[in-house]
């Protein structure tokens, strides 16, 4: 693994991430990328606002 190219990733965490840590993180991200890509690919209506938590309003 070429750490220098991943150094900004380690910095982003805000605490030291070893090469081994980064390898684990890469493995996890790889395992979920398909689902994240599917989320990114969704075409949602422009007026659809996020709900940050459950709200009963849409049901009323």
């Amino acid at each position: 693994m070429r750490l220098p190219s991943l150094a900004p990733v380690a910095d982003l965490a805000g605490y030291p991430l070893s090469v081994a840590d980064l390898a684990e993180v890469a493995s996890i991200l790889e395992s979920i990328m398909e689902d994240i890509e599917a989320l990114r690919a969704l075409d949602l209506a422009d007026d659809l606002e996020p709900i940050l938590s459950f709200r009963v309003e849409p049901w009323v």
Partner: peptide, 20 residues
């Protein structure tokens, strides 16, 4: 650690999908 690398744009897209 991987949670540190979730982008805010993806997080908000997720919350929009929750609404949909």
């Amino acid at each position: 650690d991987a949670g540190k690398l979730i982008f805010a744009t993806d997080f908000l897209k997720a919350q929009r999908l929750r609404r949909a």
